[in-house]
């Protein structure tokens, strides 16, 4: 049975291989024991933040477990851009027109932007390869959104996920090869790594500051800007089902779409219900259930007709729980081939 709970220091050994998996990007997930320890410390402090105290810097780090084995991770940064600017490219179209020459042409431009500050950002999503199936993917994302729905006052009214961008047949990002590579003189992966472990001064120093004309980028880049990485369709669908949509912003490194959504319009928020423990209706479909504790949350995926979930939720009778139906609509029925996020 899948469950989600706050990461603990004792999870580090299990997290390390997930964080360091070949091909993975998730720049914000620490890769070493020491940095993971520090991240978990921050996370534990965040879960403990008492009600009423608006912790603008909370960062909540979760593990997905299956039969008590850690098989995935996910995290929420409560508010982006607090300590350092949050970088993205904003796409806009300028019009190049001359009445005399009878010319009118659209010129798309990328502007360096810090506009995606103040969002709650999902990040550091990993999943062990044998669990890359619609149920686990949907549960991972929906579960965390259920937590946000329940504890909305700790989070922004807007949510963000930087979805990985299009990759060519060699697994490389055309935008990075056109642009970032030239200024950073390193691979996309190295750049993501540096941008995550060092302060964002690196980006301020190395990224070009001037507006960029898209029509000067390579044709491949132009046609794939803002497109999601191709082998992550189920993840993408999970966000779309929740109401996330590509914004006019893209990732500065790989051109991936910045998916955004109002917290209030999340599918999981709108479809979920709060109920007394005794009042949960019998589930005829997979159901996500969560206790309402901020400090010690536990989120379970209850298979159909699951009879008893009081024990794992660690509740006494008549306490509140929040629950929602698992939504795998639009996801692939066959579970192979989902790539590394």
């Amino acid at each position: 049975m899948y469950s989600l709970r706050p990461a603990k220091p004792s999870d580090i050994t299990a997290i390390l291989p997930l964080a360091n998996e070949q091909g993975a990007r998730h720049a914000s997930l620490p890769k070493t024991t020491q940095s993971l320890r520090s991240f978990i410390q921050t996370s534990e402090d965040s879960f403990r933040t008492p009600k009423g105290l608006t912790a603008q810097s909370g960062n909540y780090f979760w593990v997905l477990t299956d039969q008590d084995q850690v098989v995935g991770t996910i995290a929420i940064e409560a508010f982006t851009g607090q300590k350092e600017p949050f970088y993205s490219y904003r796409r806009e179209t300028l019009i190049n027109a001359s009445y005399r020459l009878k010319v009118k042409q659209s010129i798309p431009v990328l502007y360096q932007s810090h506009e995606l500050a103040g969002y709650s950002q999902l990040h550091s999503i990993t999943l062990a390869s044998e669990h890359r199936n619609p149920r686990a993917i949907a549960f991972l994302i929906q579960g965390i959104l259920l937590f946000i729905a329940e504890h909305a006052s700790y989070f922004s009214d807007r949510l963000l996920f930087e979805f990985p961008g299009f990759k060519d047949e060699r697994g490389e990002s055309p935008l990075w090869n056109d642009l970032g590579q030239h200024f950073f003189q390193m691979s996309l992966k190295e750049a993501c790594y540096h941008a995550s472990i060092e302060d964002k001064a690196l980006i301020a120093q190395l990224m070009p500051n001037q507006p960029l004309y898209e029509n000067l980028l390579s044709n491949t880049t132009q046609s794939t800007l803002g497109e999601p990485q191709q082998d992550l369709a189920d993840y993408y669908q999970a966000f779309i089902s929740e109401g996330f949509r590509p914004s006019s912003h893209i990732d500065i490194f790989d051109g991936g779409p910045c998916l955004t959504c109002f917290t209030s319009s999340l599918w999981t928020k709108q479809e979920s219900a709060r109920t007394r423990l005794t009042g949960l209706p019998e589930n005829h479909t997979d159901t996500i259930a969560m206790n309402t504790s901020k400090e010690h949350p536990l989120i379970l995926l209850l298979p159909q007709h699951q009879p008893d979930f009081i024990q794992p939720l660690n509740l006494t009778s008549k306490e509140w729980i929040r629950w929602v139906t698992l939504n795998t609509e639009g996801m692939s029925e066959h579970h192979q081939g989902e790539g590394v996020l």
Partner: peptide, 10 residues
Amino acid sequence: HACQDINIYS
């Protein structure tokens, strides 16, 4: 564009 910390210069 340069970052002395990691010795990058373009």
